[in-house]
Design a protein around this nucleic acid. Structure first.
Length: 980
RNA sequence: GCCCUGGUGGCGGAAUUGGCAGACGCACCAGACUUAAAAUCUGGGGUUCCGAUAGGAGCGUGUGGGUUCGAGUCCCACCCGGGGUACCA
């Protein structure tokens, strides 16, 4: 019964590939080009793969299979990003160790991926939770711990251009003399302050529900990214990674990468570099006396001699501004509620108000702060500062629209030229002084216009763009850009300010309080009383990995106390060889850690001497093609680039950037066809139950609906309706017995929406080749697109046609169709074949798999009608098909007479001369409108085309009685008569 | 708000980058095979108007304008969907 039997064929070839290790990457050698193609490795969740995973995986697999046939030495690995919260949450519920859950989930994922026939080199499989893997994650952390950023260090980058700033060993950190004099302990503390991995007690995002602290990036609208739980800001000692030191290089080194411009832009915006100036405003002993003018002149004189100090000191308030040209318009200052100067600037009279304001501000979570953002709030401290350019006294306020975490946590406010300052000044009746004249053509933006206010009888509108200076003393009349550089120079000369750069990017909060993450390889020194001294010791490389302690219970502590602090004393404490008592660091690393370097380990996953062999690193890196979801466009890609640069600076890897080419696949949407509003459900309840659907009342994003599902073995999965559950009339699909029309409405696939499509179901019904083909045929890889079961049916039918084109499906055995011959191919057959080879090859290079598949459909539609189907035409076609649908292709290749797998057969090439047709259709336009088509010999020149057109009867008829003004003939395209 | 995307038949999408709009597939309709169904095969179709038919004329790529012999593609303005981000001085 040799109908196209996907199940049999796929089992056979998957076994064959396994047995022959067909896809094992070869050892490095000089005579093959390497090609490293990487998928973003998955988190092995409990619910298994969904159809979104194989989208990118199929695309990379096609590229890899194609590359092998072109003689490349391909590295195509797969692994597991297996640390993470769900396994630990499962442990809390069931008591099953996360290690067990993780192991089972990995097995499911591996089975599902193998079932899809991806050509991974499984001998390189890795899991971030494997001690032999996280041993090296801990080792890399120690490299970060042992590195400081020398921002003055100059070196030549791989592009031959001079770079400034490089990570260097802490042992090479210059120690100031007064520190050295203060003794060894002071030196160690000084070093600790400069490490790329350091401990800070800045406010952090503590999420009680998840029992952990989160990175800024994991908090969305004041709620946790995972599960949308509320997040509070609390001060805690946490590990931070100094990614901000690399901000400039992270932005600059994007330039030469073959990434989508939109992703580069996303990263650049995230880094958010801005240039401007820092300026010191004199405050003297304001707050204590309420007066500031005393001592300004002395201070200015001292400054002009001594220059700009790195630390601002107590007598000044330092601000950051991108518009130093508006200094003359600064009419007040604002410091953040958390600013260290709040207390000393607050006068007795204002104390109560300020204390109260600060208290409310600290209680506000990030969410409140965003929600209340519409209304400006703040209080006056009672103190004043001196504007350095005009000597005026301006009041200092406290307001939460200034953030402690950006710039210096203090601003000079220029209400006339900043929208936020304008709004604040209007509310608190602070003077507004215009210092920039807008260009004549200026029209207020929507935001500017919205703020327009009448003050003392004059309408005032803020203006925040560039213009010409006014009311700015001798600088009046200077254009903005010009003024900016002049005033920066002046500030620099007088020691009152300096050009400065700021980033939105913050240092990376790198510790979590969970059990199921990498333990830190760090010990804290204890004094005789058992209290931490604040000094640390790193674990030696030889003693890694630091394994997890055994734990009986995984219940969160309910406090910011880390889970690992519940470990037994023999894990927590030890006495070092010098007699110092030590306590282990009990935080663990975030899930990002393992994914920051996994692509390196794939090159050399069994090495127990080093995290990677330098020779292998040099051979395989960089990743030539990296495909994954756009949700990692910022975080994962920024973090791993950062780690890579540190490893580069420390001489452990040979390239500054790990991922040469990046492509983001678009999300696959699920059907929400069967989700109806509650009232619609109520009206049709009986009919819905009569056809056997199970109503599920759901709530997603605060919207209630009823999901109508067929009973399904897996609770999250989507089950298509059957023929007899729907009625089709006039192109509309209506649920039987109801008025519910099922239209093509789609939404993100999610557990909570119960519209997840499970690949197991698809493979069971249609086979892996059909799933792969449909994933690619749906549309462009990078685009968002909806899943359709009928679409799978379509490509399945295509494979059936391919099968019958070559195989006799009425015979008992799998034998060739009688029309498959050894005859010489006809010119037309050759032309179609070579056209297909050309198009499919070009499409794979462009990752345009959907069009490649339609080309092969066209070939099949043509060849199925040929009475004689020469093997010499079918064989190359099967090779073309093989990257897309490898199982059926191997089977057909085999039946067409080859013993070996086709995995390393040379990729077919096309012969341009065979593509030429004898006659072509020539479109004839009149004034650009198509009026006729005629058959003409191929290769006519302009004159020939015109002559052929003019000789045609239909054209003659059109031309009759008209004057030809001009004739445009484009060889191979068309002829256009411009007539009157 | 700002930034990034996208908008083409009933649906998913093609269109060599300024040159025949709708490839390929789905769904739909009709026919063949069949006792029948499934499967398979064959054919059909953007739309409006004229015509009995053959055929012909007009309009069509979110909207309005522009450039051009010629625009889905380029330019200007706007509308709508999706994603990201949000007091970053």
């Amino acid at each position: 019964m040799p109908r196209y039997d996907a199940k049999r064929i796929e089992a056979r070839w998957q076994e064959f590939w396994d047995e022959h290790a067909t896809f094992k990457a070869a050892e490095p050698s000089d005579d093959t080009d390497k090609f490293y193609v990487l998928d973003m490795f998955p988190y092995p969740s409990g619910s298994g793969l969904h159809v979104g995973h194989p989208e990118g995986y199929t695309a990379t697999d096609i590229v890899c299979r194609h590359a092998r046939m072109n003689g490349k030495n391909v590295l195509h690995p797969m692994g597991w990003d297996s640390f993470g919260l769900p396994a630990e949450e499962h442990a809390v519920k069931t008591g099953t160790h996360p290690r067990e859950t993780t192991k089972q989930n990995i097995e499911t994922f591996r089975r599902q991926l193998k079932m899809l026939g991806f050509s991974y080199d499984w001998s390189r499989e890795l899991a971030t939770t494997d001690p032999e893997y996280y041993r090296w994650t801990q080792w890399i952390f120690l490299q970060l711990f042992d590195t400081w950023y020398d921002s003055a260090h100059e070196w030549t980058g791989p592009d031959g251009k001079l770079r400034t700033g490089k990570g260097r060993p802490v042992s090479e950190l210059p120690i100031p003399a007064d520190i050295t004099d203060a003794g060894e302990e002071a030196v160690r503390r000084y070093q600790d302050k400069h490490r790329l991995a350091y401990i800070s007690d800045a406010p952090v995002n503590w999420c009680p529900a998840l029992g952990t602290v989160l990175a800024n990036e994991e908090v969305i609208d004041g709620k946790s990214e995972r599960g949308s739980h509320p997040v509070e800001r609390v001060a805690l000692k946490q590990w931070m990674l100094r990614i901000t030191a690399y901000a400039d290089r992270l932005a600059y080194e994007l330039n030469d990468l073959d990434w989508p411009e939109s992703i580069k832009l996303l990263q650049r915006n995230w880094i958010g570099r801005s240039t401007g100036a820092e300026v010191d405003f004199f405050i003297g002993d304001a707050g204590a006396t309420g007066s500031v003018s005393a001592g300004v002149e002395d201070w200015k004189t001292t400054r002009s001699k001594g220059g700009w100090p790195a630390e601002p000191g107590d007598d000044v308030l330092r601000v950051y501004t991108t518009r130093p040209d508006t200094l003359y318009g600064a009419t007040y200052m604002v410091i953040a509620p958390e600013h260290p100067f709040v207390d000393r600037l607050t006068t007795e009279e204002h104390k109560a108000q300020v204390v109260e304001y600060r208290r409310t501000a600290s209680l506000k979570s990030d969410l409140d702060r965003t929600e209340l953002a519409k209304e400006k709030s703040g209080v006056f401290t009672g103190s004043y500062a001196i504007n350095p350019v005009n000597g005026e006294q301006i009041p200092i306020w406290v307001a939460d629209y200034v953030l402690i975490s950006y710039g210096t946590g203090a601003i000079m406010a220029v209400p006339a030229h900043d929208l936020r300052d304008f709004e604040f000044a209007v509310k608190f009746e602070i003077p507004i002084v215009q210092v920039v004249e807008p260009p004549a053509s200026w029209e207020p933006t929507k935001d500017e216009a919205a703020l327009t206010t009448e003050i003392n009888g004059t309408k005032m509108t803020p203006f925040s763009a560039k213009g010409t200076a006014i009311n700015s003393g001798e600088y009046s009349g200077t254009p903005t850009d010009d003024f900016k550089s002049k005033i920066t120079d002046l500030l620099n000369e007088t020691g009152l300010g300096q050009a400065a750069v700021n980033y939105k990017l913050r240092d990376w909060l790198f510790s979590r309080q969970r059990y199921w993450g990498e333990p830190f390889p760090i010990w804290h020194e204890l004094d005789d009383a058992g209290n931490p001294t604040g000094l640390m010791r790193a674990e030696t490389a030889a003693s890694l990995p630091v394994l997890h302690p055994h734990m009986e219970d995984f219940k969160p502590t309910g406090t910011p106390q880390p889970m690992l602090s519940k470990a037994t004393d023999d894990w927590l404490y030890k006495t070092d060889t010098d007699g110092t008592k030590l306590k282990r660091e009990t935080n663990s690393m975030p899930q990002w850690a393992g994914s920051c370097w996994y692509f390196l380990r794939f090159c050399d996953n069994k090495n127990s001497e080093a995290f990677i062999d330098p020779a292998l690193e040099k051979y395989w890196m960089p990743v030539d093609l990296y495909i994954g979801g756009a949700e990692h466009a910022v975080l994962h890609l920024l973090y791993s680039r950062f780690w890579h640069k540190v490893l580069f600076d420390r001489g452990h890897v040979s390239m500054v950037e790990p991922f040469q080419k990046l492509v983001n696949q678009g999300m696959i949407l699920g059907d929400t066809d069967y989700n109806v509003p509650p009232e619609v459900f109520a009206a049709n309840r009986d009919a819905i139950e009569a056809i056997g659907l199970e109503p599920l009342h759901l709530k997603v994003d605060d919207k209630e609906f009823v999901a109508l599902r067929n009973p399904s073995p897996s609770a999250d999965a989507y089950c298509p309706l059957t023929e007899d559950q729907v009625v089709k009339e006039k192109g509309k699909t209506i649920l039987k017995g109801t008025t519910i029309e099922l239209r093509g409405r789609t939404d993100k696939m999610s557990k909570s929406r119960r519209n997840v499509v499970n690949p197991d179901d698809v493979v069971r019904d249609y086979g892996a080749d059909s799933l792969r083909l449909y994933e690619m045929f749906m549309g462009p890889l990078e685009q968002v697109k909806p899943w359709s079961m009928q679409g799978v049916e379509g490509v399945y039918r295509f494979l059936g046609r391919v099968w019958r084109m070559i195989i006799d499906d009425r015979a008992e055995d799998v034998i060739l169709n009688e029309r498959v011959t050894d005859a010489e191919p006809t010119d037309e057959q050759l032309r179609i074949l070579h056209k297909t080879i050309k198009a499919v090859t070009a499409d794979i290079d462009k990752l345009s798999c959907n069009t490649a598949i339609s080309r092969m459909m066209e070939f099949t539609n043509f060849m199925s009608h040929e009475d004689s189907r020469p093997k010499s035409v079918l064989q190359p076609f099967v090779l073309l098909l093989s990257p897309f649908a490898p199982h059926i292709a191997e089977e057909l290749w085999n039946v067409l007479g080859s013993e070996k797998s086709l995995a390393y057969e040379p990729w077919p090439t096309h012969d341009e001369t065979l593509l030429v047709e004898d006659t072509v259709e020539l479109p004839i336009q009149f004034n650009g409108k198509l009026k006729a088509k005629l058959q003409v010999p191929n290769g006519l020149n302009k004159a020939g085309m015109q002559a052929a057109a003019e000789a045609d009867d239909a054209v003659k008829k059109q031309l009759a009685g008209k004057t030809v003004v001009k004739v445009i003939a484009v060889p191979g395209r068309m002829v256009n008569f411009v007539v009157r």
